[in-house]
């Protein structure tokens, strides 16, 4: 599904990712954990194709193809989805209009005909149940004036509608109270399937109580310094990130 080899990424001349290697097979859930500033979000953004970041070395293969040379919209149409840490507000565009545009661009790329407004509305309302969203969010502008939790639910709603093969969830647990966390996690779990891989990017182990990963990787200072099973997350929670930090990295 996804093969990352020696990925190095800079932003404004500063190197953030210093050689990442990662392999994700279909159906697997991988957690990327790390302290603030370790490069977790950069990694997520680069996979989605944010042009603000420059790839200086390495490669990323998605279903055997070079992912990095594809435009963000092409990646999305081929099944890559990023749930943003800070979802952008799109003033004046309703959630329904936005999502139908997305679905129809996706369908067009697959040679399917556009879905009409009524059919889409039904689909959307159905999917909204997964994250227990109120129907008023159909007509509300995308993310505008939403609470933190509502934004995160809206991200998972989009995932449910777009049905990606590779979902990258960037700090989806941040800013959620325990009830919202349960709802969002249950939504994600319902979307788990043998064909869908999930990359969970998170600072805290808490999310992993609800969405149990197959693998955990620890990212520190732009490198994966430790990988293991789900137990690794508990060890991190107990011992803190200093436990896995390289001695050299601690000095800065």
């Amino acid at each position: 599904m996804l093969e990352v080899k020696n990925l190095r990424v800079s932003v404004e001349g500063k190197e953030i990712l210093k050689g990442i290697d990662l392999t994700v097979r279909p159906g697997e859930v991988h957690a990327i954990m790390g302290p603030n500033g370790s490069g977790k979000s950069t990694f997520a953004q680069v996979l989605a194709g944010n042009a603000a970041f420059t790839v200086t070395a390495g490669e990323v293969l998605y279903e055997g193809q070079n992912l990095l040379e594809k435009a963000p919209e092409v990646r999305a149409r081929e099944g890559v989805f990023l749930a943003f840490q800070y979802p952008t507000e799109i003033a004046g565009v309703s959630n329904a209009y936005f999502l139908r545009a997305a679905v129809n661009d996706l369908r067009a790329a697959q040679g399917l005909e556009a879905i009409d407004a009524m059919d889409f509305l039904e689909l959307m309302k159905e999917k909204m149940k997964i994250v227990e969203m109120d129907e008023s969010f159909v007509a509300r502008p995308v993310n505008e004036g939403y609470s933190g939790g509502e934004k995160k639910r809206n991200e998972i709603l989009q995932m449910a509608i777009l049905e990606p093969k590779l979902a990258i969830l960037d700090e989806t647990d941040s800013g959620l109270d325990i009830d919202a966390l349960k709802i969002v996690s249950a939504g994600v779990n319902r979307l788990r399937s043998p064909k869908r891989s999930i990359l969970l990017v998170t600072h805290y182990q808490r999310l992993l109580n609800y969405i149990v990963p197959d693998y955990v990787h620890v990212l520190v200072d732009g490198k994966i310094v430790k990988s293991g099973g789900k137990d690794l997350a508990f060890q991190l929670e107990e011992k803190g990130y200093d436990w896995v930090r390289e001695p050299g990295a601690m000095k800065k």
């Binding site: 944010n50 952008t88 545009a101 661009d105």
Partner: peptide, 16 residues
């Protein structure tokens, strides 16, 4: 441009 990227990341083409 952040908003443009957000929309594109959902499969919406640049112009749209």
């Amino acid at each position: 441009e952040e908003a443009v990227f957000y929309l594109k990341s959902r499969g919406i083409g640049e112009a749209r």
